[in-house]
Design a binder for these strands. Structure first.
Lengths: 151, 151
DNA sequence: ATCTAAATGAAAACGTTTTTCAATTAGCAA
DNA sequence: TTGCTAATTGAAAAACGTTTTCATTTAGAT
């Protein structure tokens, strides 16, 4: 319950959706971690506490949360689809550890200049971008070092 | 046969892979368009000319081409996986028209400064990034204008 | 021309996502 | 509170997309 559980629930209702036990559990799960979770991972965790909740409901809830812009979809890091609770800020991007999946947000991408130039050069009307950095967080690179020392 | 068919074929062999009719056809298909094609789209096009080539072979060839770095994988634009023949340049990114799928390359992303800053602030060892711009190309926005005029 | 490892196609297996449908439930009205 | 209704749910099946398996074929070296 680190982030905006309550806010997310309010937004759901504002969007005209009912607030069910299942949806609450799913929101709590996504909000309760910094990792980006695949639908299957969300299901697994939710299912542990509430064995009656089905995978279908997870998919349906994800769709709604994404539609309302309450979660972010990431692409990098192997899996095609994984989700994060949207942080308070608006436009932002992710720095992802490809080992442990930890995600750090950053907001200032400073791509406006590039965007303007591209638009001018190509005659495109640009309406968005996808930016993710991939790397290794401190803990993981430390672990790796220790392991290589053992050889 | 716009781009580097021949080069691609040479690279394949250099990688220790045999140059079969099927692979030639698949490479020709990807190289013959500027669009980014999903595996299914590649199969459909290849299959039209060579009905005996199976979808499995398309997948296997894609894997090899990606492994050798001869094609690029894109994520934006709805589909989870789609491919483009790699242009002559090395590191580059894509500007994608979300209507027609046209892809324009650009090389200078100028993210080094941001990358260095992020690395310093987060203690991450950053080893790559994913950047795609999404928009509407001139033709598509023109078409849209015409259509809205009809209403 | 012959040989062999690599590559292929078809079918089956597998994992993920969506659809269908009958049963249940949240949120509102009385 | 109680009942009503449309929204939501779970289970099963269908629909996809991707990978594996295996017998057959073929590229490329000899």
């Amino acid at each position: 319950m680190i982030y905006s559980d309550k806010t997310t629930e309010q937004e759901l209702r504002r969007g005209g959706y009912k607030l069910t036990t299942q949806r609450r559990a799913i929101i709590g799960t996504i909000a309760g971690t910094q990792e980006h979770l695949t639908p299957a991972a969300i299901y697994e965790r939710v299912h542990r506490k509430h064995p009656s909740i089905g995978l279908v409901t997870v998919y349906r809830t994800i769709d709604i949360l994404a539609e309302l812009g309450l979660i972010c979809e990431t692409h990098a890091g192997g899996s095609c689809r994984s989700y994060l609770m949207r942080r308070p800020s608006g436009h932002h991007h992710h720095l992802i550890c490809s080992d442990c999946g930890r995600v750090v947000d950053f907001t200032d991408c400073d791509l406006e200049k590039l965007e303007r130039r591209l638009a001018k050069e190509t005659n495109f009307k640009i309406n968005g971008h996808l930016l993710e950095f991939l790397g290794q967080c401190r803990e993981c690179s430390r672990k790796q070092k220790e392991q290589s020392r053992l050889c």
